[in-house]
């Protein structure tokens, strides 16, 4: 049933955020530490486990896949609800600080990506929808 996949996703989401909160308060931080990341790791591990057991029929996978495919539309909705006016109004300090940080990060990314060996690839990545 398709809901099994969505429920699995919901379980990972909630458990990850919960663990992120626990980690945050253990570290004395007023924020969630890596909750979404923990949730993603949980889902990766559970998928491998269920797949090996043969408990992951196509239907169940579709219950997760739909939400993965909804990702870009959700991001578009997120963009449409940002406080862009405040960002523009932040004045030269906000603009300069953000621009400086962005430029430095872009340069360091370009450097780091070209350093060292990169033997990762998307070749075997599952196909995802057109957009």
């Amino acid at each position: 049933m398709i809901i099994y996949g969505t429920a699995l996703l919901a379980f990972c989401h909630l458990a990850g955020l919960f663990l992120g909160d626990l980690l945050g308060s253990a570290l004395g931080v007023k924020s969630n530490v890596g909750g979404v990341g923990i949730a993603m790791l949980l889902l990766i591990v559970l998928r491998l486990y269920l797949h090996r057991k043969g408990w992951l029929p196509k239907e169940t996978e579709a219950g997760v896949g739909f939400w993965g495919a909804m990702y870009i539309p959700v991001v578009v909705a997120m963009a449409a609800t940002q406080n862009v006016v405040a960002a523009v109004k932040g004045g030269p300090v906000a603009l300069l600080a953000a621009f400086g940080a962005f430029v430095v990060c872009v340069l360091v990314i370009a450097l780091l990506v070209r350093s060292g060996r990169d033997d990762t690839s998307l070749e075997h990545a599952p196909h995802v929808g057109e957009v």
């Binding site: 990972c12 949730a39 889902l43 990766i44």
Partner: peptide, 19 residues
């Protein structure tokens, strides 16, 4: 739709595609 709840839900779902 673009709030933290659905955004995180959809991001977590993309983990299904991680190798």
């Amino acid at each position: 739709m673009g709030g933290a709840m659905l955004r995180d839900f959809a991001i977590v779902a993309t983990a299904f595609e991680v190798q």
